[in-house]
């Protein structure tokens, strides 16, 4: 391989910086909606960041980090946009809100567990986000539509990554199948919350993707994977939810404490 046989380029795409500079100030409602999607992605990125140097094989370290970086990119875009409404930056929102001000769905704050549980969460998250962004790219709000259009392609890959591992863990060995089923059992109670409409989403017709409208696509695409995995669609507990209202499971506080500790030791500092 000569030095010229591979090329490196930056690649043009819509980034958080573009949003912060170019987007119009969103309405309060739109900002609250963007905050939800941003928090989902941020919490997921934070969780996946933990896996760095802990994955089952080095190639998977690289793969999980790519997904984490994509999610972090989506989070930054949504938070930057939401922040315009309140004169806040992405970092103000990420580092200086308390637990009850976070409006991610509870799914995203569920712990990594073992690799199977992480894949179970990743499977649900990416199939949900795929349906969400697919609809949102047609939003009447141009900024949300642009963020969604970029995110959609990336989440499509995350979905494929999760599907591939679902197959291998479900059909690999007895041990991996046992762990995969347990991971799904832990994660599945948090699926229902993702598809609940509420006052905010009802008030943003044509702008937000109505959560309930995403369920059909989600069920169809996940059912196809479950069939290949020879797994029954999980049933059982349904968690109470409330993440969109700032009500969280006991895991989020710890996650935020770690994420925010340094920034909060130096309020007003830049990095």
């Amino acid at each position: 391989m000569s030095e010229t046989s591979f090329q490196v380029s930056v690649g043009e795409a819509f980034t958080a910086e573009d949003v912060a500079e170019a987007a119009e100030k969103p309405t309060e409602q739109v900002a609250r909606y963007a905050l939800r999607l941003g928090d989902d992605a941020l919490i997921l990125a934070q969780q996946l960041g933990w896996w760095v140097a802990r994955a089952p094989e080095l190639e998977e370290d690289v793969a999980l980090t790519n997904i984490a970086l994509d999610q972090l990119g989506h989070a930054r875009a949504f938070l930057s946009y939401a922040g315009l409404a309140w004169g806040k930056t992405e970092d103000d929102l990420a580092y200086f809100r308390g637990e009850s001000e976070f409006v991610n769905a509870q799914l995203f704050e569920q712990p990594n567990g073992d690799f199977a549980q992480t894949i179970a969460r990743q499977f649900v998250a990416s199939h949900f986000q795929f349906e969400l962004y697919r609809q949102l790219q047609g939003s009447a709000n141009a900024t949300l539509a642009a963020i969604a259009a970029k995110a959609l392609k990336e989440v499509d890959y995350h979905r494929d990554h999760a599907d591939q591992w679902m197959l291998r863990l479900s059909l690999g060995t007895d041990e991996s199948r046992r762990r995969m089923l347990r991971g799904l059992e832990v994660i599945w109670p948090f699926v229902e919350e993702l598809f609940r409409d509420d006052e905010l989403t009802d008030s943003l017709k044509g702008v937000a993707a109505a959560p309930s409208s995403l369920l059909e696509g989600f069920e169809k695409s996940t059912a196809a994977v479950f069939a290949r995995c020879e797994i029954e669609i999980p049933a059982g507990f349904v968690a109470r939810g409330g993440g969109r209202l700032g009500q969280h499971t006991e895991f989020l506080g710890h996650l935020l404490a770690e994420m925010q500790v340094l920034a909060r030791e130096h309020p007003g500092a830049t990095w």
Binding site: M1, F6, Q164
Partner: peptide
Amino acid sequence: HLHAGSLHAPDAEMALRNARDLYTRRNE
């Protein structure tokens, strides 16, 4: 197509995906 390097993977499908993650992170 030019040789970029090598990697480990359990099967062809994962090898392609690992290659995408490892050898094209910078739009290569």
